[in-house]
Every structure is written in structure tokens, then in C-alpha cells.
Simulated scan of single mutants.
Amino acid sequence: MFLGFFSILIGPPAAAQEWHGPTTGPAAAPGKRIVVVAENMRNDGIGGIVADLNEAAGVLQWHIVTLDAAGDEARLADALRISVSGDVGDGTAADGVVLAGLDAVRGMPDYGDAAQERALPLVGWHVGPRPGPVPSTPVAINVTTDPAAVARLAAKAAITRSNGRAGVVILTDYRYAIAVSKARGMANSIKACGQCTLLELVDVPLADTATRMPVEIARLMQQYGGELTDILAINDLYFDDATAELQREGIAPDRISLISAGDGSPSALDRIQRGYYQTATVAEPLALQAWQLLDELNRLMARQPVSGFVADPIVVTRTDPAPAVADFRTIYRRIWQR
């Protein structure tokens, strides 16, 4: 639950956000079995969602089975096949499926028919380019903040920090529609800034950041030197593997700014608080989104439409505390009659 770190690392929270999510819905039936297909648990966002899904499942008296693909395409295919089958490993079938961090359009064609034949409720987190249903897939709702809003906020942070003179490199992963959407949004905002420069858009798969980022940071610093003032990325994970190389290159922490359009991981919040290269992250309210995912599944299992709720992203900097998230746990407990 990454937002729980804000009060420790960033300062006292501001007033709680106003709740604009659901307030009514079906009561929860106990004993449901939910399979979570996680693209890669090394990604702090996915790991956080899985942890918070388990918390919400405890309230619902549901059982979570997590299948971690660890960034491997073959393992992901196996996990998707298992999730929609009639046996998830112990002779029982899933009552619902949560997809976490994968690209549903690319990943589901071979398994969507099986899910639809079983009328299997299926929801996702960060599995498409925008919130809502994912076209051409059985995913009833993709739970995410608005990628366009996240991209604008991240780019604005770079523009403001640089007094409108940012020299920007953007890191993304072309395998995922949501990553491409964020990267294009950030690029468009930088291009619209009269005295800013978009130096390069770099494709680095999230699964390869440990090996690729040191090489890319060395190349970028050699190629652009002082022109490069800000590195924007679609996820904090890139910066977990970038800062050591910046230090080896002799780049002072206040010489270059790292800004993430996604997640708000514990390591990112720590870097921001210490002033260690990263200056901002546009965070997801992960715990809220996890509870929403199970609420959406509960609605589908009760043959009701999804709520369609879209939570607001949260910009975190060293000087600006994050607003407290509304008391969604109490609200969802009330809806579920738990």
C-alpha cells in the first residue's frame, strides 16, 4: 500500500480527497476464489496491487491465488491459460480473474473465448491504454488513473522545475498500450512547451531495466551532456536501476531530475524525500484500486454492471504532501455489508 508511506516520507497528509466513487452495490457472497495473473511482481506497482488485493479479500472472505509470470512471455501464457481453465491447480475453478500489469489486447486473444464460454468475470489493472472496458477482450474494466492526466502532470512537473527550459528524455515500454499512451502524452506536453526540448523517446522493456538502464544512462549522458535536464519514465522501476549509474557518471543529484508518470513506489518516495535524483512521481492510489478491483468483480458476479469509477492520480514531490485518500475501506465495507 504505497500511499501509506506518504506520511512517513513526505510529511503530514493534506485534507482527504473527496470521494466520487460508488456508494451502493451488491452485498458480497463469501468463499469466492479469485485468480490474479501478475505480469511481474518485481514491479512495485504490481506487487502493491497484489498485496492490497489480499487485504481486501480478507474482508470479503475470498481466497486469492496469484500466478506471477515474472516478466516471462511463456510463463504469462501459462498463467493466462490456467486462470480461465476449470482447474487452477487443486481441482477448483476461479470465480473471477484479475489481470495485473499485462497488455490485455496482446495477451488475451488465445484465452478470451474460454473466459467468455465460462462467463468468467474478468477485470484488470493497467491492462489497457485507458480506464474502462478493454475493446476486443473480455476485460470488463481496466482500473487505472487516466493516463493522459498522469502524463500531463509528469510533464508539468518537469516544465515547472526547469522554469520552462527542460531538456527531456522519456523512457517507456512499447509492449504495453498504457505505457505508450503515457509516453506520447508526456512527449506532446514537452513539445508544446516553447523553450523545452524533447531529446529522445527510449524503449526499454520493464523486464530488462536491471541490465539496460546502466547502459542507457551512460549513453544518454555521453550523447546529450548538459542538454539533458530531466528524465521522464512511465514507471518508477526505471529509476531503481538508473541512480547508481548516474552516481558512477559523477552526476550530482541536483544536476538532473527524474520524474515518473506512474506508481509511487516506496523506493521512489524515499529518493524524493532524500533529494536523490528523483524529484516527483505521479502516484496511483494502489490500495483503493485493489479494493475497487474486487468490488467490480463482486458486481459482475452478481450480474450487475461495473461502477466505472476512475480514481485521481496524486503528484508527490519533496515539498508537496500527498492528499489523504478518502476512507474507501469503510465505504466498500458498507457496500459489501462487511
Rank of each mutant, 00 (worst) to 15 (best):
T229A: 01
T209Y: 00
A177W: 01
G58V: 08
M1W: 09
M108T: 12
T317P: 05
D72T: 05
P323M: 04
D241H: 13
W19R: 10
D68R: 00
R42K: 14
W19E: 10
T317N: 08
L99Q: 03
R75P: 02
V139A: 03
Y277R: 01
L228R: 04
E39A: 14
T229F: 01
V306H: 06
A69L: 00
P138N: 08
V59M: 11
P266A: 04
A149P: 03
P305V: 07
E249G: 04
L286T: 09
G96H: 01
A94E: 01
Y277T: 00
L153Q: 14
V215W: 02
A302D: 13
T23M: 10
D78C: 00
A183P: 02
S85T: 03
I49F: 10
G308I: 01
L220S: 10
M186A: 03
V98W: 02
L293A: 09
A148R: 12
K182Q: 12
D312T: 14
N43I: 08
G124T: 09
W291S: 02
F2I: 06
V36F: 03
A183S: 14
L246S: 04
D68G: 02
R271Y: 11
D113V: 12
G264C: 06
L122G: 04
A207T: 15
Q223Y: 05
